[in-house]
Design a protein around this nucleic acid. Structure first.
Lengths: 260, 260
DNA sequence: GAATGTGAAGATTTTCACAGCG
DNA sequence: CGCTGTGAAAATCTTCACATTC
């Protein structure tokens, strides 16, 4: 590959801010729920509440798409569903392949929300020969040797990686070489891809760690607030570390001994 | 509840920017890998590459934690592992409960990365009586009626929701009432929680939709670049919409007929 | 009157670039 | 000299507040 490396720093998507794009699916879901209840129109205030954002942000977001509302009235639900779907590319059919049909992969394959809304699981692929042929979510698992063929024949451009961390980069390389240009990565690894390939990662343990950070904060804060008794969790044996000389932390203090 | 509502807008965590907090787990993982390979020190450049960020960002992030590096040398791997772990609150033991042991819940329970690094699955809970007692990930599923008791007895402050969307808010309310103050939500719903409770959401289909957006972009762009043949996906029947009057989209044009 | 659409202000995040220390 | 730590600039994102339109 010539210029290829990680990330895509500049290529901003035709004016629509990334932060807005990330919220469009939220709006779409809220709108779909309204649509199913046959609600004809909705105000920015109501829709924002349903989507869990504030109304100014929602209106700003929509302003990037165009003027789809009516002043004094609100937004036409069906119309907006269509416009956002179109913007997100969900009026097309996106065949996807899932690689790595372990616990998580199988759960994802069975997950309904996956299959809905324009995405179609074209194939499930695994490297374990004993998995091959076994039906998961009503579809036989295929062997990884056929990955390139499967991608090619189905015109797949989106791949989902749910393999163990060790296999992820290799699988990723093969997917990319076969023509996949978007990857959703569930393996706890940083994937390196050439320019022009998008990677999104979903990492369960990272989310938990972020929560733990905030949770820790709460424990040391206002002892009256919060819900019920927030009993401070037991302090574990405290991992490992090297010898410190003249380090300064923002707390000022640090543990006198850092265990190895 | 008195003031309670959604989100927590102001309460910035003791100076460390949220964006930085979100990256600390990434650094930690990269550092842990280095540690296992017994690498003693690492430069911001190397570590940044391993974590998939750029080095200026990494150094800035670390500067919020304190001066933990050595100029001309780099960072002591073990020391940094310890400092970041501590900052994230991972030197404590966090008992968590998982509610909703369906496909996804079971997969999560089995997911190793969940149990590692300070998190301990204290209980698996489900509302389906036929699940109760069944062992999942070597642990018997408990009935949802005991939720409050389980949370209380184990001092749980972090809950994971992997129920169907319809049950999520109800489960959330019970968790919060029982004393849980951080929630990781896998159900495709916006959860409403009182102030002081953190919610993080992981949504598989949203991630896919964001990828689809970028994928759609690529198709309409430079037809030479990208990998191999990017065959444009088949256009589906195009969902639903209302009649349009004088709307203007940023493209100027829009479909003449919008199917209902 | 009601609610959108949006400039402008404010806040946060990223990047630059280099002073300062080992 | 090499690499960290960090002010300052740039970019991005959020919020305000109100003119505009139905």
């Amino acid at each position: 590959m010539a210029t290829g490396r990680t990330h895509r720093p500049a290529t901003r998507s035709r004016g629509i801010p990334e932060a807005t794009v990330a919220r469009l699916p939220l709006y779409l879901r809220a709108l779909t729920a309204l649509s199913e209840r046959s609600v004809p129109t909705v105000s920015s205030e109501e829709l924002a509440a349903a989507a869990g954002v504030n109304s100014a942000k929602l209106r700003k977001d929509f302003s990037y798409l165009g003027s789809y509302g009516t002043r004094g009235v609100g937004y036409d639900v069906e119309y907006l569903v269509y416009q956002i779907s179109r913007e997100l590319g969900l009026t097309q059919d996106w065949p996807i392949v899932m690689v790595g049909i372990g616990n998580l992969g199988a759960a994802l394959a069975n997950y309904g929300g996956f299959a809905s809304r324009g995405f179609r699981v074209a194939a499930l692929i695994d490297a374990d020969p004993s998995m091959v042929g076994r039906p998961v979510a009503g579809m036989p698992v295929q062997f990884i040797d056929d990955l390139e063929k499967i991608v090619d024949e189905n015109g797949v451009s989106i791949g989902v990686i749910a393999t163990p961390a060790g296999a992820a980069q290799q699988v990723c390389d093969r997917l990319v070489a076969a023509g996949v240009t978007s990857i959703l990565n569930f393996a706890p690894t940083v994937l390196s891809v050439p320019d022009g390939v998008d990677v999104r990662k979903v990492d369960l343990s990272i989310e938990l760690q972020i929560l733990a950070f905030h949770e820790q904060r709460k424990a040391g804060e206002e002892p009256g607030a919060g819900a019920e008794a927030v009993l401070p969790p037991v302090v574990r044996d405290a991992g490992a570390a090297a010898a410190a000389e003249g380090r300064k932390g923002p707390d000022g203090d640090m543990p006198a001994v850092m265990p190895a």
